[in-house]
Amino acid sequence: MTPASPEQPWPVWEVFIQPAAGDPHEHAGSVHAVDAEHALQNARDTYARRNEGVSLWVVPAAAITASTPEDMGPFFDPANDKAYRHPQFYKVPKGVKVF
């Protein structure tokens, strides 16, 4: 049996999971689903089978805009020489043990 029209695959959703309260959500993987509630349930069943988290986000994969490898230089290199953003840049007088 050949269907009249080719099957329309379910869209991909990216899944983010929060491992514990207070943690940031981390990318876990993706699932296929037809709508947001469906994606949420599939994400729960697929990525939270072992107590992996306390909260889930699902995002249509098509809605994510990512930087490209070509962006790497202009995006991230300029941060290299801004040592003053890091606490180690600053001297603390000897004798001050806890700052």
């Binding site: 269907p3 099957e7 379910w10 037809v34 469906h38």
Partner: peptide
């Protein structure tokens, strides 16, 4: 094959 109608129904409903 037996799941095709299920997958199609989900797409149609969404």
């Amino acid at each position: 094959a037996e799941g095709a109608w299920v997958r199609e129904a989900a797409v149609a409903h969404a």
